[in-house]
Amino acid sequence: MTPKDIQEILGFIAASGLEEVVIETEGLKLKTKRNPEIKATQMVSMPAPQPVLANPVVQTPQQLAAPKAEEKAAPVAEKVSSTAYVAIKSPMIGTFYRSASPTTPTFVNVGDEVKKGQVVCIIEAMKLFNEIESEVTGRVVKVLIDNASPVEYDQELFLVEPL
């Protein structure tokens, strides 16, 4: 089970409209729940965005065995947990580009600090080019998608550590 597999499962669950999902296999226990607070704001103000899986909780065996995991610090740090970081997600289906054009440098790299509102990538959809802005100020810890790869709606693109 790679992070990408988990992402795909979450994408599928997000698209399904299910309120709460628990999947349990030998190697994985995954529990997701839509955030009721988000739902409430959708009803009050602003045209509602499509249902988004807010704060997915991903539990892996290491996390379940919490006391043991502390002994092995390395694998825990290596495992990128979406709870500690904020994910910048794709608002549409399209192609992910890390630069404005093939000849210009990438917008951001791992380790870079980004400001809220700063452009981090372009998603091309049906020949329209969409500049995606970071929703938080922080440091880029991971770029999850390769340049020029297809992305799905709500797929995570970057992980940012809020500063």
Binding site: P49, V119, L128, F129, N130, I132, E133
Partner: peptide, 10 residues
């Protein structure tokens, strides 16, 4: 036509 959008959230 070349359309370039600037998105804020969704």
């Amino acid at each position: 036509i070349l359309i370039e959008n600037i998105l804020q959230h969704n």
